[in-house]
Design a protein around this nucleic acid. Structure first.
Lengths: 320, 320
DNA sequence: TCTTGCTATGAAATGCGTTTCATAAATTAT
DNA sequence: ATAATTTATGAAACGCATTTCATAGCAAGA
């Protein structure tokens, strides 16, 4: 393999000049540039990218932390990130955590080691303090509110969104309202729980523990929920489901069991995934691709920390 | 930032010895090792990973080429790859191509530049010849039959699978059978088309051009198909759909329009995605995660090229 | 005419860890 | 007791491109 030195020799110039040509730096005469290009051609020269990385201390790589991939939510989000990455000539390094904290720390570590130039955390598992320990090593962007912290964020306000959805359900006459969340921990869940508690309290509606479901991620989890609902003697009349996937699962199961939606049970989804459109599930649209795009831009912008709230839109369909 | 030289000085040894400790090489006395470890601790030393990469010519990175991510097929496949990658201490570099050939070539180029140690192509767009040009730079694994070529592969035989499905449909009494595929190009599609042609011809069944649909990837595409079906005066009675997503879309649309499934239209899906289970779609199970896992193992095994065919299983549900 | 200031170019320093080679000392084998 | 290994350790080479610094020539401005 030829290296820059060989090329320099072949072209009769210094390595500096070759480097200049390679990097489109000014101050190279046309003749020398031509000679260098010819040598590159003839020597079939390929820059050793790892040497470039070492030298520059940059890798044009951005880490993306996701708990898992085979879920439309993250699929869309990463799609948005990936599209923007291409446009900026960056590659993505995928770090699948399955919500394991140590995997997330590993990702942060990669930032420290400069294996990646920046890190996007789509769903955080470890403490803020730990993340903050790494901000000096490179930009970090998260998909949740990080106001006040030196970490860029593009997020939606889950408290507001949840309140919006609850208001809508209430307006539609529902009083016995329950909800389904993904993982129990995490700020997002806490925000949502808070919104629920506050809302129900304010309007003096019953807060039933049994109306609350956790660990709902996929279609299959919807079945689980319906099975529990059936067993209740006084089930909720409306369910706010933090993922369209789960809502779709619930709906399908209801159809199976001839539970009328929305008459017997109203369903409000989240995300506005294709499936919700197809199954006519009323949902809150979240601009995931757009969020992904913004996250990427924040991640590669080492100069400033920014916080961007994205708004959600209620999409009325037929499940409420 | 302290580097290996600093550590060597601090511990009163040579950089070689530090490197030995770092890499768990033998022939280091207990005392020196302890001194080195202490220095590493005190100096808060972090190996410069880019220097390691340069020196070793390896990056512990495997590239993964996918056309897009927000599709359960690729989501699952990559999930399988990612799980195995974690187990082997590799990271994945995602290359989203949107089926653009040049993006795929870029990925191959990364292999050449040693930015990645191996490449997994989940869905190939460019010519075999181009891919083969790169095999000397590192292992490549593909998710399609590559028999005879020096490229590892884990795949399912689409000809066989399609034939299996067609046979099943025919056994169930269907004669007017159509099918839906993703992209028109690609070996997989060609295999399927071939299977269809051969099967229909052999049994002397009608091959109607209008029964064939292309560019079906997502739920939404199902709608499109149904709309066309409605317009036909002599529509097919069964459809073999190369993705459960699309099958689900079709089914949902049929439900909407009160087209009885399977009475009016039988649907046979592909992949055995969660959605097919939920919607009771008869499908062919493809062990995607398993395929992903094998692909990864093939990719990091630089010593031998292997070809592994995975079998599909027909899952009888209620849509046929 | 003299001073700036730009253009052009290369030597050398910088980023940093791994690995080969050489050597010395300590064992083990013969 | 001598030869053959094994253990231990470091210097130097190797992987390679970028960037700073120094220098020289030439053109434009004062």
């Amino acid at each position: 393999m030829t290296n820059i030195k060989d090329i320099a020799k072949m072209a009769g110039v210094s390595v500096t000049t070759v480097s200049r040509v390679l990097n489109h730096h000014p101050y190279v005469s046309k003749e020398k540039e031509a000679a260098v290009r010819k040598a590159i051609e003839e020597g079939n020269y390929q820059r050793n990218i790892n040497a470039v990385h070492l030298s520059k201390g940059k890798t044009q790589l951005v880490g993306v932390v996701v708990p898992f991939l085979n879920h439309p939510y993250f699929g869309m989000l990463v799609e948005g990130i990936a599209n923007e990455a291409v446009a900026h000539n960056f590659k993505l390094v995928l770090i699948q955590t399955n919500y394991q904290e140590n995997r997330e720390i590993e990702a942060l570590h990669m930032l420290k080691l400069k294996q990646i130039d920046a890190l996007i955390i789509c769903s955080r598992s470890c403490e803020w303090e730990i993340v903050e320990d790494y901000i000096s090593y490179g930009p970090i962007a998260v998909c949740e509110e990080a106001g006040g912290r030196s970490i860029s964020s593009t997020y939606i306000d889950h408290y507001k969104s949840f309140t919006k959805a609850l208001t809508y359900l209430h307006q539609k006459g529902h009083v016995k309202i329950g909800y389904c969340l993904g993982r129990r921990s995490g700020d997002n869940s806490r925000q949502r729980e808070g919104a629920y508690r506050d809302f129900m309290k304010k309007l003096n509606l019953p807060q039933v523990q049994g109306y609350i479901f956790h660990d709902c991620f996929n279609l299959e989890d919807g079945e689980k929920v319906v099975q529990e609902l059936i067993r209740m003697e006084d089930p909720p009349t409306a369910l706010l489901v933090s993922s369209d996937q789960v809502a779709a699962g619930i709906l399908a199961c209801c159809n199976d069991k001839s539970i009328g939606v929305p008459d017997k049970l109203a369903l409000m989804g989240f995300d506005n995934q294709p499936i919700s459109r197809m199954m006519n599930i009323t949902t809150l649209h979240i601009p995931l691709k757009e969020i992904g795009r913004k996250l990427f831009l924040q991640a590669i912008n080492a100069n400033e920390v920014s916080h961007e709230e994205m708004s959600v839109t209620l999409i009325e369909r037929l499940s409420v």
